[in-house]
């Protein structure tokens, strides 16, 4: 019960609060691939807050560890070669599609952006199909 509803709802609300704070105080959306891509490639005038956001993001799981006394569960089944291929696709695809689960999924849907609705629908479909193919092929 707790695991199925309260933790996801509470965690999701914190993510929404984070996006709200960024908009209300700093005036921009919370898009991880945009922030990281900006840090890697462009280094504009937002360099300071982009570094601060990533530093905060890294502190998040450690804060969880301090509050709950145990590290959050992170179970990765993928092999090294699969991780590398997946990482390349995620990095390339999110920059080409101008966003990921945060920028399109949270910020874009909250702004009722048709562009983000299209993006979310697209990446959900290809992700579900990818897992389906892995299941049918016995690679899951």
């Amino acid at each position: 019960m707790t695991d199925t509803y309260f933790a996801p709802l509470g965690g999701g609300a914190l993510i929404g609060l984070s996006a709200s704070l960024l908009m209300l105080l700093n005036g921009h959306i919370a898009g991880i691939s945009g922030i990281v891509g900006g840090l890697l490639c462009h280094r504009g005038q937002r360099l300071g807050h982009d570094i601060a956001f990533v530093a905060g993001l890294l502190l998040g799981p450690l804060t969880y560890l301090v509050i709950f006394g145990t590290a959050p569960q992170v179970v990765v089944a993928a092999s090294w070669p699969l991780l590398i291929v997946a990482g390349l696709l995620v990095g390339f695809g999110t920059r080409m599609g101008s966003g990921c689960t945060s920028g399109h999924g949270i910020s874009g849907l909250a702004r009722l952006s048709p562009r983000s609705f299209a993006a979310v629908l697209t990446f959900l479909i290809t992700a579900i199909l990818t897992v389906l193919v892995m299941r049918l092929g016995g690679w899951l």
Partner: peptide, 25 residues
């Protein structure tokens, strides 16, 4: 670019279960 990029991202997300935020955090 939006549709092709999002499609590519979805495949990578499905393969490993990581998207950018969780991967960095």
């Amino acid at each position: 670019p939006l549709i092709i990029g999002s499609s590519i991202f979805g495949v990578g997300w499905g393969l490993a279960g990581f998207c950018p935020g969780p991967a960095i955090a």
